[in-house]
Nucleic acid binder design. Structure first.
Lengths: 185, 185
DNA sequence: CATAATATGTCAACATGGCTGACGTAAATG
DNA sequence: CATTTACGTCAGCCATGTTGACATATTATG
């Protein structure tokens, strides 16, 4: 189970079950361990923030919005919609709550005054960092257990799991946000 | 950003922001890349099955139930509730649909006839394997990109991300399922 | 300049999948 | 026999996603 050589099979579609020659071309054996570990790891990963958020009557939707606005100050509503891949109506609800409660502000675009550029307030940044801090604790605990190279290995694995189409865009987003958020330190 | 030595900071709670001595004890710098990569990787990872499921008027809830029943034939309803960590009312809805449409069957327990042990039908197994096959394609594509050792590295990382309390239970679950599902090949 | 396109907001209605609370029934257990 | 357990069900609420239609301000264009 551990060292199956699968690299030759990955082009095959998965549908059949047995290995009758002439039928469906041998699906790769499901990688059950990774499938299930991803489920449980992600569950716990988002579970930490959930507890904090529930005390504020916020949910994961608020977390996602707050996170990306914090990471990309001055982003357009349209950009956020594209990242989150939800409708503006869905975004509107949670965004309105975040604005009403003073976690996020919208400023008219300088060049294009139709735009409502999004920024976190100090209050919003504090919350965003608190939530990121919880997740960071978990991640760093894992890295500490695993020894050096774990961060790089995790980054490479997760990156390779992203749709090849989006991958560049996601990496650009992360890099751009790195630039936009870091200078405040 | 790449090689910050964080292992000395992980015990510190994250709340403050600056490094005033005497105040909150220096939160670890958020590991933004992993936080965001996990978000996007998981999104794509569950996105593949979602497309197939939507054609059957099923959602992720059905997927999770079908997955774990397929992996743990004969499991009790109570076990499934514990794994999914939802209420029996929530489970009831999706389970009923899966049963009504012939993907899952319930059999009276042999020793304890109160139990309704869960099994996938051949139809259910086919669907479960189709969905797992999609996710396996993505995983194996990633592993192929990353070279040897990627599977082991991913497993170790994901395992370390799970709550220490549950970790043993999860690993036992995966191992037990491995035993229960494999012998049919 | 008039018109079209764009960025955003909003109203209404609906679906999914969580939740709580209450209650029922059959079977096991003390 | 009384209680507990395993499970099912009814009723209703909430969060967060959806579609469709429409309004408003601003920019872009023929």
């Amino acid at each position: 189970m551990a060292d199956v050589n699968v690299s030759a099979k990955i082009a095959a579609p998965a549908s059949g079950l047995t290995e009758r020659p002439g039928a469906a071309p041998a699906p790769a054996e499901p990688v059950w361990d990774i499938i299930e570990l991803l489920f449980f790891a992600y569950r716990d990963f988002v579970g930490d923030p959930d507890e904090v958020l529930s005390k504020l009557a916020f949910g994961r939707a608020h977390h996602r919005v707050l996170h990306f606005v914090n990471r990309n100050p001055g982003m357009k509503v349209a950009d956020l919609l594209e990242i989150l891949n939800i409708t503006k109506q869905s975004l509107g609800r949670v965004l309105k709550q975040l604005v009403d409660q003073g976690f996020v502000v919208q400023k008219e675009g300088a060049q294009d005054r139709r735009q409502r550029l999004l920024y976190v307030t100090p209050k919003g940044e504090t919350l965003a960092l608190k939530l990121a801090g919880l997740q960071t604790q978990r991640i760093n605990r894992a890295f500490a257990e695993l020894g050096p190279g774990a961060h790089e290995a995790a980054r490479r694995f997760l990156t390779a799991m992203i749709d090849a189409d989006n991958r560049e865009g996601v990496l650009r987003l992360i890099t751009r946000a790195e630039r936009a958020t870091k200078p405040r330190s």
